[in-house]
Write a protein that binds this DNA or RNA. Sequence first.
DNA 1: ACTCCTCTTCTACAGCTGTAGAACAGGCAT
DNA 2: ATGCCTGTTCTACAGCTGTAGAAGAGGAGT
Lengths: 220, 220
Amino acid sequence: MVTRYAVITDAAIALVAEQGMRGLTHRAVDARAGLPTGTTSAYYRTRKALIEALVQRLADLDAADLAAGSLPSDDVPAYPPKLTAADLDGIAAATGALLDRWLTDGRDRALARYACVLEATHHPELRDILGHGTASRVQARAMLAAAGAADPDRAGDHFVACVDGLLFDRLAGAGALTAPPPGTPECRADLTTAVRALLHALTTPPLRNQRPRERRAARG
Amino acid sequence: MVTRYAVITDAAIALVAEQGMRGLTHRAVDARAGLPTGTTSAYYRTRKALIEALVQRLADLDAADLAAGSLPSDDVPAYPPKLTAADLDGIAAATGALLDRWLTDGRDRALARYACVLEATHHPELRDILGHGTASRVQARAMLAAAGAADPDRAGDHFVACVDGLLFDRLAGAGALTAPPPGTPECRADLTTAVRALLHALTTPPLRNQRPRERRAARG
DNA sequence: ACTCCTCTTCTACAGCTGTAGAACAGGCAT
DNA sequence: ATGCCTGTTCTACAGCTGTAGAAGAGGAGT
């Protein structure tokens, strides 16, 4: 049995994805979920409570996916101590496929998430609930450390920011028009290309402009 | 003299940055701009018209900045036919500094823009007005072509998506907490590092996994 | 049976929002 | 001055939103 909380918050996510935060009202959620008017208002008296529940639901869904390995923030496996270039290519392909799923099956959740992140700008308490990609961030840092990045923490943050940017661009930006349509092999290939470039860049510092000493260190 | 249209739309941008799209109401704009109640409603009868004016104003401001070279989408100069690695580093530094300005002086505009891009998901007509980063996209493609990228069009799109992602992460995401604070040299340096990695990645295809023939071609 | 408790549904209401139109003011041309 | 026109300010009002509380329904325990 699906709890009523889940029904309500899932409807809220769909609503936000379709109409933005402005469409999120108690009555609209009732209608969208097919529940009698007043239900959402009874469960979440204030609008703030409703939004927090929505954000919590997003976090819970991510956690569930992470556990199930189906549509997590990053379902790359635990890393061997040293990642080879071939490993990185594999990770890039997995990430590309993952992004493509966020663009198709996970589209509503992805859109709702971006709306909530933006909302968190003026409502800091949301940020705590969102935990904002903590899991994927930690994982990215670990991966880049295993791949021998010079500054894995910073590089990990750059990586997730750029990957988020790729996703956002396809979801809402101009990429939605110019890039190959989501759900196609071309889309996955294009995303994989981008992620692979990112990974190689973040693990291999540009040699040409390093002074000899640094260059030797980077190679070692 | 500043036209009333500008006063209204600028107030609207500030409002959206502070409170999100939900805060954008005719009366709130009046109050924010210090105009008598009803003014905004007289200038833009419907809310849709108001939003479109807001988006148009964003586009106009960008165009003005582009012309003045002060805070444009990308104020990198016209490129010489062949870009060297040192040129790329210069572009990275300029882009890092530019992003830092978007985080400080241009913060409201950047936040309002992201809100509008998200809004454009359900209101396609906004996308046309936004032109959504067309200028910077074109410029990125030209730059990557000059730098000898294999597929400059796709690489250009990846580049702007990632740079937008870096910006969004600092503005609204977790980067706002973990990264060095905007306006500092550290922030600029960190962003420059990320952009430099991006540029080198997108212009230099990863050699290790290419077959010898491609490798030779890429080098030439 | 009755009571109590939780969950659910319905209704009320004050305040806000979108939109329209009336009233007003100043300047220009006749 | 008179009339007209553009730009401004004020007011009206229907509909929606957030929030609260009353009314109802069913089940568990006595």
